[in-house]
Design a binder for these strands. Structure first.
Lengths: 138, 138
DNA sequence: CTTGAATCTCTAGTCACTAGAGACATTACA
DNA sequence: TGTAATGTCTCTAGTGACTAGAGATTCAAG
């Protein structure tokens, strides 16, 4: 049995975050010692690792809840899990696309100015003030 | 003079968001009609456009505050503005890098499963449960 | 002058945590 | 067994950048 601190070390999820996950229903209510401290077994460790991994991949708490539901009912269709992963992938791709456009403009903006001179003539500020200076829509 | 609603239409910033920006000090306190409604002039429109543009580029409210300070004091060095833009660019690049890794893993995960069958054997769930199935660290 | 849309302020909610206070539990060592 | 240090408990409140809703007031058009 692990204390919440040990679990935290093993999963790299901070202690208050573990309690938060319990409150949100991602983790079942933990067993307690006579002194009211949480104790976890291997199943708890595995579930928290699952959550951690999914959070790292950008899944929302809600999405993870659905995935856990599916885990807890192995007779249900797998399609739902694939749907969740696929829509997550789409979101990630959209974010990348958007960030690439930003990167392009930001690099143009910060290259345009040599950092010398006064801000009254600053190309960075001018670029931000006037959208027409942008190469493209964003 | 524009009402808050007109300003909202022109800048595509929602009305409550404009009020929020005023409260946060990004916009100066607007003039008011005798009936206490906000009225904006061209300067207000321009400043809000600046804010909108910078937010689109992912600058935080705090960073925008600093940029506005620089705008309001055109005698100050331009270096600070360039620093802010450059660090924003670095953040964007770091995000892209991370998202690319996620994309790779998510696409592997969601391709691995054909969506048929039951979730007891689902590859998506297995992948999320077991970090060792990942190709690489993330 | 009336009607309906726009605006006002205020509070509270969102997401996924994070921080801090003050009390209690456990563990390590003498 | 005593004690000190560390860990854990619950609770409230804060973060960033808004968003939603209530209930009251004001504006513009006909």
């Amino acid at each position: 049995m692990y204390s919440i601190g040990e679990l935290s070390k093993r999963t790299k999820v901070k202690v208050p975050t573990i309690r938060y996950y319990e409150e949100m229903g991602l983790l079942p209510e933990a067993e307690r010692t006579s002194g009211n401290q949480r104790r976890y077994d291997k199943a708890g460790l595995e579930r928290l690792s699952f959550i951690r991994h999914a959070r790292d991949l950008g899944f929302s708490i809600e999405a993870i809840s659905s995935l856990i539901d599916l885990q807890d009912h192995p007779d249900r269709s797998c399609e739902a899990a694939t749907d969740i992963a696929t829509s997550q992938l789409e979101e990630v791709r959209a974010k990348i696309k958007r960030l690439r456009a930003l990167e392009k403009e930001l690099s143009r903006i910060s290259k345009g100015c040599n950092g010398e001179g006064v801000s009254g003539d600053c190309y960075v500020l001018a670029s931000l003030a006037d959208h027409n200076l942008c190469d493209r829509e964003h």
